[in-house]
Amino acid sequence: MDNAKVLEQLKGEFGGAIVDDVDFRGDLTVVVSLEKLHDIMLYLHDDKALHYDLLSDVVGIDKMPREPRFEVVYVLHSMDDYRRLLVKVMVPIDVEVPTVTDIWNSANWPEREVYDLMGITFSGHPDMRRLLMWDGFDGHPLRKDFPLKGKDFDEKWDPSTIQVL
């Protein structure tokens, strides 16, 4: 099954929910609407012909001045004939993305990582905690407005600002 056929089938099934498609260097990227994301992902997994059964990764991208600000990309592979598909969704700031952990268990940690480093929350995720940074860390390091050097931990601080949880 080649990229054109995959796109044709998806457009036939979901029509307007496929906002855009890019075929770059042999890999097909489909941009889908946020409302229909979970339905489309479920279809991609369950459909007999498409059958993308391996979710390799979830990538968060911050395109700062632009609106909507974030992008989330899902990297899918099919173990039938080893196809690759990238599914992209545009996410405005402070908007939650429906989780896909109920479809692929492998989405669990990548989604937590996107939450931790990029600050995008996934609704319905079983365990939405920080993963790489420590609990109580302030900010999301991979956002473009987070300084490269990080926060100055040697800075003088006012003990009265400490909150006891």
């Binding site: 260097r25 890999d27 990764d57 990309v73 990297v75």
Partner: peptide, 19 residues
């Protein structure tokens, strides 16, 4: 452009997503 490319690492699929 945006690409995803993966190679067979010694532990599994080692992929890089580059923008």
């Amino acid at each position: 452009g945006e690409v995803y490319h993966s190679v067979e690492g010694s532990k599994g699929e080692l992929g890089f997503y580059l923008v």
